[in-house]
Design a protein around this nucleic acid. Sequence first.
DNA 1: GCGCTATACCGGAAATTTCCGGTATTTTTT
DNA 2: AAAAAATACCGGAAATTTCCGGTATAGCGC
Lengths: 212, 212
Amino acid sequence: MKIKIGIADDQQLFLRSLSNLISSFNDFEVVVEALNGQELLKNLAALSTLPDIILIDVQMPVMDGPTTVREITLKHPELATVALSMKEDDHSVLSMLRAGCSAYLLKDVHPRELERALIEVRNTGYYNSDISGVNYRRLLRRQENDEIKLTEREKTFLKLACSDFTYKEIASKMFLSEKTIDGYRESLFQKLNVKSRTGMALEAIRQNLVAF
Amino acid sequence: MKIKIGIADDQQLFLRSLSNLISSFNDFEVVVEALNGQELLKNLAALSTLPDIILIDVQMPVMDGPTTVREITLKHPELATVALSMKEDDHSVLSMLRAGCSAYLLKDVHPRELERALIEVRNTGYYNSDISGVNYRRLLRRQENDEIKLTEREKTFLKLACSDFTYKEIASKMFLSEKTIDGYRESLFQKLNVKSRTGMALEAIRQNLVAF
DNA sequence: GCGCTATACCGGAAATTTCCGGTATTTTTT
DNA sequence: AAAAAATACCGGAAATTTCCGGTATAGCGC
């Protein structure tokens, strides 16, 4: 019996290539592919036999990695999910692991390591290697790096602040007074731990709080 | 005789998967793989028969896409290069085409289109489709979008400006007066066509003038 | 009802950023 | 050797951003 794999990645070429590659491994078959989280859930629902492991990209349109993982573990707790990402940044890793991933792999791992990881996830339920490029120990050491919760208004403001607009212009776009805007700014500075608007914009992008 | 392909991409998993995929096409074989431009050149030099087409990622460490393309077309003008990128942004596309690429494909094309594109490049010397996600016509229409030339000092300043530092701090890091820094700032605002430091930082990242 | 959070707003001051119009020296290019 | 480009700097002022300590209303859960 082959190990059944699912893959969700928004880059079609990568998705299909990877699918092809995994199918070429011994004892593996890809049973579902999707370009985003929503499509994955829809496709999963149509399957008679669920996959054993699903590889999920962190950044996807429509429904992103963490949300997808949460949805899946909610509906199918027995299904193992593996995060697949280009970025090693703390926030991505943590949000995926917290959402319930069994492993976090970088897209520049060697195919052989991917195979090894998949086998290990299947056997032990998880895979965890500093060699894979992610230093879990360091991450676990400092847990204060908790997810940043923003209110809707703050998110709207933040998106507008990642631009060449002045706060005055942003205020007018949001139909608010400059002073109110100033409140959001201050709150975001706190949450993102920065001292300037430039820092805020860069941090927002780094943490994927705004699309870029 | 199969069409010989070379691939350079810094994401190992993508590189190997894609290589696998292309090898599975009829009439194609991958004869060289590399994780960056430098490695590609080294590997090419060791080959007895050159590939027909080389797929090159835009963003790579050590040696990036445009530089690699220039080097290759210099040494092997008969070799066709195809840019492979995640981003459609004007600057990436232009810099690759200007460097001498025969085609520009996004990583979310369908494998079938990749195959079609490769065949076309082999036959006609180029491939060019708005369907592939890049609107060449729009790009060619406005050529004033020319590459932005920065001096070394400006680059250094720009990198430092993409941060939470104040100009005062940047001045001290560069051992210059704040006024001198102010000169660079003004010059960069002009070149990048922005009105604020935040806009400058974002534009710098968008145009890949600073690593992020 | 009480606490909590989000929302919306204010005055005032200090710090930083931005803009303007300059000068001068060195390096590179033609 | 002259022109052009890059580097380094200055004064002064206006605009924007940042910081501080407030107030007030509305909605939600317990």
